[in-house]
Amino acid sequence: MVRFSNNVIGLLNFLTFLLSIPILVGGVWLSKQGTTECERWLEKPVIALGVFLMIVSLAGLIGACCRVSWLLWLYLLVMFLLIVLLFAFTIFAFVVTNKGAGETVSGRGYKEYRLGDYSNWLQKRVNNANTWNRIKSCLQSGKVCTEFQTKFLNDTVNEFYSENLSAIQSGCCKPADECHFTYENSTSWTKPVNATLDNPDCSAWDNNPDTLCFNCQSCKAGLLQNLKSDWKKVAIVNIVVLVFLIIIYSIGCCAFRNNRQENWKRY
């Protein structure tokens, strides 16, 4: 029973070490094969995660199985910091995603999204030109609106208005309803003649498939709505991971205590 905690920590870290290998290989593959801004942006975090998991798991594995107390102490310190950071991020995710929701439009199957409805922190992130250019590149390379056009191309105006569009489709692939554009097809709209377009998104719209409403505030809002939904899911998963990490940390503390007791017995 004394060695049980050491064996559990050793086994878990061995599995983590095996997990780090495909993650690291995936990051290296992205760095070599990545052709889009999205893929190039992902490569560094993926490589960093793979290296981090590999180093930490080796420290825990050697510390627990070889009775190297200082390595196990280092492993526990990293685990403690990880628990604190994960807890802080979970609280932060709930706070910054608390505001914002789509607005229901009469006679429409979709909602409209306004950037001002979301938290100031999120607004600042997407209003940064460099950040938005990277995000826009991802949306364009992901062919979000190309698939949108293909799916709804043959819709009549009434059929289109009844479609249940996603937040990004509503914000990036069509003009805002308040612009009162004339519908031709899913990604081709005619601006009203001599109309006063108070909403800057109305001027930003272009029928060019590479432009559409990717420069609109509504597109940024649609992205934040997606982000809000995803972060809330991640926050819930984080709670489960936190419980798991706390259990592992407790077992690790027992293994560390076992190491110290055995070291005392030797002397």
Rank of each mutant, 00 (worst) to 15 (best):
W41F: 15
V8N: 01
Q33S: 15
L15Y: 02
K151E: 14
R260V: 06
I47T: 11
N98W: 05
T187L: 04
N120W: 00
L139Y: 01
S170H: 05
F80N: 00
N215V: 02
F94D: 05
K232H: 07
A101K: 11
A64I: 01
K265A: 14
L53I: 09
I135L: 13
H180C: 04
I55P: 04
L12M: 09
D198I: 09
G142W: 00
S137H: 05
S170M: 06
T190P: 03
L122E: 01
G252F: 03
L122D: 03
S170N: 06
C219Y: 09
R40T: 13
C254M: 08
F256G: 10
G252S: 04
F14I: 12
L223Y: 15
D117F: 01
L77K: 11
S141C: 02
G252Q: 04
Q261M: 13
C138F: 01
V234M: 15
W231K: 02
Q140E: 11
Q261A: 13
N6M: 05
L212A: 11
T190K: 14
Q33N: 15
D210R: 08
I62C: 15
L76D: 07
R40S: 12
Q217P: 06
V2H: 07
T90K: 04
C172Y: 11
I21V: 15
S186A: 15
V68D: 00
N120P: 04
P200Y: 02
K111C: 04
T150K: 14
L227D: 01
N215M: 06
V126F: 11
T36S: 14
L197W: 10
S218Y: 03
V78R: 03
L42P: 03
P175S: 01
N226G: 12
F17K: 01
T196E: 12
G107C: 14
D117T: 09
C216D: 14
S141Q: 12
N7W: 08
D198P: 00
A176H: 10
G107W: 08
I236V: 12
K124L: 01
K265W: 12
L227E: 05
I248L: 15
C172P: 02
E163V: 09
L245P: 02
E262Y: 13
S31N: 12
V78P: 08
I9Q: 02
P200N: 00
I236Q: 03
L245D: 13
A88V: 13
N226R: 09
F214V: 00
Y161I: 01
L245T: 02
N154D: 15
E163H: 12
I239D: 07
N207T: 02
V126G: 11
F14S: 14
I239K: 08
E147Y: 08
A48N: 04
I236M: 06
R3T: 05
L153Y: 14
F92C: 08
V234K: 07
N259P: 03
V243L: 13
K143M: 13
C138L: 06
V144T: 12
T16N: 12
L74K: 03
K265E: 15
Q123T: 11
V240L: 12
G107S: 12
K143I: 06
A221E: 03
P175Q: 03
R134Y: 10
E112R: 07
N13E: 07
R260F: 09
T146W: 00
P192I: 06
F214K: 05
N154M: 11
L165G: 06
N158A: 15
P192V: 08
E39T: 14
K136P: 09
Y267I: 13
V68E: 02
